[in-house]
């Protein structure tokens, strides 16, 4: 017993080092599995507060670009309104048909990263605003990512520029689907994998979100095809997608809540049994 104590006292520095290092490694490994990085993330009061203060200063420098983006979006919305296919002068309006499926919340980006291998964004809306895990995040141009952690007033978004991110996507011209991943090389490109070799692919075609997941509505823009090659097996295409969004410059985003997601999920779980 005496010897054990002596050993511990003699090597206390090394033992403390091992302890701290193993804590750090555990946190690192946990952070590599989706939904597990509960403790170390920037959606908490301390980091959110600091980033909030910083953002309130930073905002003033981007007011002009932000205005341009909003004006452009207004233009598009106005266009859609004027060209809307609903016949206005009909005496019969089917209100049940127009029930909205998605609730939209606007949020400010407090922190954005794009140069790491696993990138996250911190937003200034949290549980108090009804934001929960697995809500989709988009801008007026296209998708940004998926909420993966929330605190009371802040939430963290798993960016599409992240190894863990896998989003269902499809070609706009046909219904061939694939999964959207990122190889960590450039913040301008993401990769669409496992696209069937029968798909009609042309450079410049548009890629949009697929309707398979309950997170994003079908048809939100992602990017255009920059180049493509066949897989080693020769059965599928891997497509290099140029993003619509400039991921290095994201100011205001929209959080999407699918109001039917519970229904869809419970239905899908049932069929698994």
């Amino acid at each position: 017993m005496q010897q054990i104590f002596n050993f511990v006292i003699r090597n206390k520095t090394f033992l403390l080092f091992l302890l701290l290092l193993s804590i750090a490694l555990t946190l690192t490994i946990q952070s590599h599995s989706y939904h597990k990085s509960k403790f170390i993330n920037s959606a908490n009061v301390l980091t959110g507060g600091v980033y909030g203060t910083m953002n309130s200063v930073d905002q003033y420098f981007n007011l002009k670009t932000e205005n341009d983006i909003l004006a452009e979006e207004n233009r598009i919305l106005r266009e859609q309104l004027l060209n809307s296919s609903v016949v206005k002068d009909s005496s019969f309006i089917d209100t049940t048909y127009q029930k909205s499926k998605y609730r939209v919340t606007t949020a400010e980006v407090y922190k954005n990263s794009y140069s790491l291998t696993n990138n996250y964004l911190t937003l200034n809306k949290g549980k108090n605003d009804g934001v929960k895990q697995d809500f989709g995040v988009i801008t007026s141009n296209g998708i940004i990512g998926i909420i993966d952690n929330t605190s009371k007033n802040y939430s963290r978004t798993l960016s599409i520029l992240n190894h863990k991110s896998q989003i269902n996507a499809q070609l706009k011209s046909s219904n061939h689907i694939g999964s959207l991943t990122w190889n960590g090389k450039s913040p301008v490109f993401v990769q669409l994998e496992d696209v069937s070799q029968f798909a009609p692919i042309k450079e410049g075609d548009t890629i949009v979100t697929g309707g398979e997941s309950s997170i994003f509505p079908k048809g939100i823009g992602i990017g255009t095809i920059d180049s493509f090659k066949t897989d080693i097996s020769g059965d599928t295409y891997t497509i290099e997608v140029r993003l619509f969004n400039d991921m290095t410059n994201v100011g205001t985003v929209y959080i999407l809540e699918n109001l039917d997601s519970n229904e869809i999920n419970s239905l899908e779980n049932k069929s698994d049994e």
Partner: peptide, 24 residues
């Protein structure tokens, strides 16, 4: 000293969403 260094790394991790890489 070891403990303070660990804490510093962990705080940087907290801000940059990187698990425990800075702490390690």
């Amino acid at each position: 000293f070891l403990f303070i260094s660990f804490l510093l790394g962990l705080l940087v991790d907290l801000f940059s969403d990187s698990g425990g890489v800075h702490a390690a």
